[in-house]
C-alpha cells in the first residue's frame, strides 16, 4: 500500500477504521471504545502518511517506531495495523477469543507484527520510546520514534521523569503526541489532577511543543512535518480531541469509556460515519 497524502482520502480511511472499531467493540464486548475513537485521526495520519514502515518487513532495523503509550487504545491500533497490511483483517475475527492474541492491550512485540511495546500500564510507553530513540543515536540510525499518550496518562510521574531526560539528552528524534480528549476513566482530567496548561507544561519541560486540532488531518500532517525539530529538542504535539469522536451520541460522553454499543447503536454509528 502506498502512502496517502490526500487529506480527504485519509479522512475516509479514518471513518472506515472507526466503523470497524465500533463493530469489534460491540461484537467482542471490548471497552475503551471512546478512547479508541479519539485516537483514530492521529493513527491514520501516522500509519498511512508519515511513518517510514514496511509491513512486509516489520522488524526492519531502520523503520520508524510507533508506541501506543495509552495501551487501552489497542482495539483501534489492531485495526490500523491490519488495514496497513501487517496482518490480514481476517485475523481480527479471532478478536477476544480465548487463546487468541487480540485483547484489550497490545501484546509483547514478539507476538504480533507491528507492535513495538506491550503497553497498558500507563506511563511506560513514553520512557521506553526514549530508550528506543536513544538507541538510534547510539547506533547511528536515522529512524524516528512516535509515542501516543493519553491526557489521563500524563498523571503518571514517569512521563515527566522521561520528559526531563529526553530534553536533557536533546532527543530530537522523539515525538510525543498527547490525545488530549479531556477525560480519564472516572472524570474530567483537569478536575482529577491539575493538568492545565498541558501545553505550557510540555514547553516548560524543554520540548518543542505544538497545539493542534487532533481531528484535523491537515493540521496533524502539518504538525508532524515540523518533526524532527530544528532546535535539537524532542517534539510534543498536544492534540485536542473529542472522546468518542465521529458518533454524535458517544462524543464527549465518558460513559463510553466502558460502555459497549448494541447492534442497533452500531448501525446508527455507521450511518453517521457514512459507512454502510
Amino acid at each position: 500500500m502506498k502512502q496517502i497524502s490526500d487529506p480527504a482520502e485519509l479522512r475516509s480511511v479514518a471513518r472506515n477504521l472507526r466503523a470497524k472499531t465500533i463493530e469489534t467493540s460491540s461484537r467482542t464486548g471490548t471497552p475503551h471504545l471512546a478512547s479508541c475513537l479519539s485516537t483514530l485521526d492521529l493513527l491514520t495520519a501516522l500509519y498511512f502518511s508519515v511513518l517510514r514502515i514496511d509491513p512486509k518487513n516489520p522488524r526492519d532495523i531502520g523503520r520508524d517506531r510507533f508506541i501506543l503509550s495509552k495501551g487501552h487504545g489497542a482495539m483501534a491500533l489492531f485495526h490500523v495495523l491490519a488495514h496497513r497490511g501487517f496482518y490480514s483483517e481476517e485475523m481480527l475475527i479471532t478478536y477476544g477469543e480465548d487463546g487468541g492474541i487480540f485483547g484489550e492491550h497490545p501484546p509483547a512485540p514478539d507476538q504480533l507484527p507491528g507492535i513495538e511495546a506491550a503497553t497498558g500500564s500507563l506511563g511506560h510507553g513514553l520512557p521506553m520510546s526514549l530508550g528506543i530513540a536513544l538507541a538510534a543515536r547510539i547506533q547511528k540510525l536515522s529512524y524516528n520514534v512516535y509515542a501516543l499518550l493519553g491526557d489521563g496518562e500524563c498523571n503518571e510521574g514517569s512521563i515527566w521523569e522521561c520528559a526531563m531526560l529526553a530534553a536533557a539528552q536533546r532527543t530530537n528524534n522523539l515525538c510525543a503526541i498527547v490525545d488530549f480528549n479531556k477525560w480519564q476513566a472516572t472524570g474530567r482530567s483537569q478536575e482529577i489532577l491539575a493538568l492545565d496548561s498541558l501545553v505550557d507544561k510540555w514547553r516548560a519541560f524543554g520540548w518543542d511543543t505544538h497545539e493542534i486540532d487532533g481531528h484535523d488531518i491537515s493540521a496533524i500532517l502539518s504538525a508532524l512535518s515540523n518533526f524532527p525539530s530544528a532546535c535539537s529538542k524532542p517534539t510534543a504535539i498536544i492534540a485536542h480531541t473529542v472522546k468518542g469522536k465521529g458518533v454524535s451520541f458517544m462524543e464527549d460522553d465518558n460513559n463510553w469509556h466502558y460502555r459497549i454499543p448494541t447492534e442497533d447503536e452500531v448501525l446508527k454509528s455507521k450511518e453517521e460515519l457514512g459507512v454502510l
Binding site: P127, M128, I132, A133, A136, Q139, S158, E161, M164, L165
Partner: peptide
C-alpha cells in the same frame, strides 16, 4: 554513559527500550 538522574522508573523503561533495539 547516561546519567538518568534521580528517576529510576524512567531509567528502567529507557533501558528496556534500548535492549529491545540491539543494545
Amino acid at each position: 554513559f547516561y546519567n538518568c538522574g534521580v528517576a529510576e522508573g524512567n531509567m528502567m523503561s529507557v533501558a528496556a527500550g534500548m535492549a529491545l533495539n540491539n543494545l
